[in-house]
Structures are given as C-alpha cells and as structure tokens.
C-alpha cells in the first residue's frame, strides 16, 4: 500500500498524573479508512484531538503529510489545517449560524471567492452530505442528531480536505441512519480520494467501511490490521471484542451485504 499520510511515533499523553497514551505508534495510509476502536476511556477521542493539535502531547511526534504538527505555527499551521477536516461527535455546529452559513465558514478563508460561488459550494457540500435542500436555512437547534452529524460532515468537507477525521460518526443514530452514514463515508472516500481516520464503537461500521482497524488498549495501539487479521488476535480484550455476540451479528449482516 502507499505512503503514510499520518505517522504517530512514541506518543505520550497525560492529564495531571493520569497517563492516557504511552509509547503509542500509529500510521494512516493514503486513501484508506482506518477504524480506531477501544474500550471506554482508552483515549480514542483524545488521540484524534492530539493528532489535530487540540491537545499537547507530553512526548513523541505527530507527523501529518511529513510535517511535525507540534512544531508548526502561523501560516504553515493554517495551511496544514486546511488539508484536513474534522467532524466532532455532536457535529459541533455554530449554533448562531444556519447550516449553509456553517459550511461557508471555512470557505470564507478563501480569498476572492464570489459570495454566490461560496453559497453554491456550501449547498453542494450540504447535498453531498446527504441533507435535503431545505436543511440549508435551518439552525442547528432545529436538526436531529443525525442531521447535525451530516451538517458537521459537510463543514468538514468544505475545503476538500485530504484527511477526514470522524469522531463516533454513527453513535446515537438509528441502524438505518448509521448504515446510510457508513455508505456515505465510503462513497465520499472513493469520490474525493480521502483518507479517513474514524473513531468508533460501532462494529457494523468497522465491517462496512474500514480497510484497517487499530485497537487501542494498554495505553498504546495494541494491534492494527484488517478485519480478518483482528479475528486471529489472541489478546483477551481483542478476542472478546471481535468474537462477542454483537460482533458475530455484525459479521453475519456484513457478509449478507456483500
């Protein structure tokens, strides 16, 4: 497979005396969808936040596109941030703006872009994220949880990023909505040539869209590999996770779909 677009090496994160990650290594390859799983409190979301620079790691390096995220500042940092898009768990939409205006926020950074072009692009992204036309003028408080996530995705995609970070994209969605979201992620990856870093709890999502899976446990990435490789791992937690009753159900539906 191709080059590593994100390389995390020897990462150590801690809050006070509580160590979340210690000596964590992780790669994201170009064009793949990487699913990051782990029990509650293993720092999946913290890892995402550290990679995009919202948390300062104690030690270790995070390299995105070969550049050290921690060492960048100013315009170089902004240029890097435009090459990734982040969708937070609840959508994290700006509550005083409509959906269209939310998606226009990143587009405002583009110099000499005509307002009608900006509006047209925002509407296209909203539509690509699978929202109906009339969602454009709605405020976040009028949207359901699933629609907020889609609007958050539209905003993350506004500048055509190369990497997409998704935090629990299907948590709190009904099975039909979650299924549609899974398919949307794969479609967008294929159409826009994205690399996706996906934090999830959802075994169906892992089956439906992830090329590779990284398991966070014992403060580091315990194993990473394809679904088939995960099933062979002989660690008690990993075995329990991928062989439990829910996992079996997800596997059979996953096979049925194929």
């Amino acid at each position: 497979m191709s080059e590593n677009i994100i390389e995390v090496r020897g990462l150590r994160t801690q809050f006070g005396r509580h160590v979340v990650h210690d000596g964590l290594d992780l790669n994201l390859r170009r064009g793949e969808i990487l699913g990051v799983v782990g029990g509650s409190g293993t720092g999946k979301s913290v890892l995402l936040r550290t990679i995009v620079g919202l948390n300062q790691p104690r030690a270790g390096t995070v390299r995105v596109f070969g550049q050290d995220v921690g060492a960048l500042a100013g315009p170089a940092r902004e240029a890097l941030e435009r090459r990734w898009g982040v969708m937070f768990q609840g959508g994290a939409l700006f509550s005083s703006l409509t959906v269209r205006e939310n998606v226009e926020v990143p587009l405002n950074a583009v110099p000499d872009l005509a307002p009608e072009v900006r509006q047209g692009l925002a509407e296209l992204k909203v539509s690509m994220a699978g929202l109906p036309w009339n969602a454009n003028d709605k405020y976040p408080s009028d949207l359901s949880g699933g629609m907020k996530k889609r609007a958050g995705l539209a905003r993350a995609l506004a500048l055509d990023p190369e990497i997409l970070f998704l935090d629990e994209p299907t948590a709190g969605l009904d099975p039909i909505g979650a299924d549609a979201f899974d398919r949307l992620i794969v479609e967008l990856r294929d159409a826009l040539n994205l690399s996706v870093f996906l934090v999830t709890h959802d075994l169906d999502t892992l089956h439906a869209c992830c090329d590779r899976i990284a398991v966070l446990a014992e403060k580091k990435v315990l194993v990473s590999g394809t679904m088939a490789e995960m099933l062979q791992v002989d660690h008690p937690w990993v075995h329990e996770y991928f062989h439990g009753p829910r996992a079996r159900a997800a596997m059979t539906t996953g096979r049925a779909k194929e």
Partner: peptide, 18 residues
C-alpha cells in the same frame, strides 16, 4: 477518467432547490 468521475459525483449530488 478520475476527473470525469468526480464531475459525475457532483452531478448526482447537485442541490435540488424546492
């Protein structure tokens, strides 16, 4: 071919005003 595919994707997602 890849560019044409991208255009096709956008064409499909074209916003439908109501």
């Amino acid at each position: 071919e890849a560019q044409a595919r991208l255009l096709e994707t956008v064409q499909q997602a074209w916003p439908q005003p109501e």
